[in-house]
């Protein structure tokens, strides 16, 4: 279990990443901003899962459990959207 200092550092990083989303859309070209915002969102999620949900301390199989669900639903969204492209 990590120290409060580490948790606080992660928390601050999360706040900064939240602000970046608004900044990206203001200053970048639209699709570049969309890409950057998605990268920021996935980074935030990874930080929360890795530190706050302690995935880094769990057996790797728990991470696979999460990733399999994520992959399945990304597949659904991407393939369905592609099907009407």
């Amino acid at each position: 279990m990590a120290s409060i200092k580490l948790y606080f550092a992660v928390y601050v990083a999360l706040l900064i990443l939240a602000v970046t989303k608004v900044i990206f859309i203001e200053f970048f070209e639209y699709w570049t901003a969309v890409g950057a915002i998605l990268v920021s969102a996935f980074t935030k999620s990874a930080l929360i899962a890795y530190y706050f949900q302690h995935l880094r301390e769990e057996p790797r199989a728990i991470s696979w459990l999460v990733l399999i669900s994520l992959a399945a639903v990304l597949l659904l969204a991407a393939a369905a959207t592609y099907s009407i492209t």
């Binding site: 999460v66 399999i68 669900s69 399945a72 639903v73 969204a77 009407i84």
Partner: peptide, 21 residues
């Protein structure tokens, strides 16, 4: 709880996927 959350990832993901679609 992790198994439940995996299921919830799919539910939320499907909602977001529906929105994107």
């Amino acid at each position: 709880m992790w198994v439940f959350l995996a299921s919830d990832i799919v539910i939320f993901g499907a909602f977001i996927g529906a929105y994107v679609f």
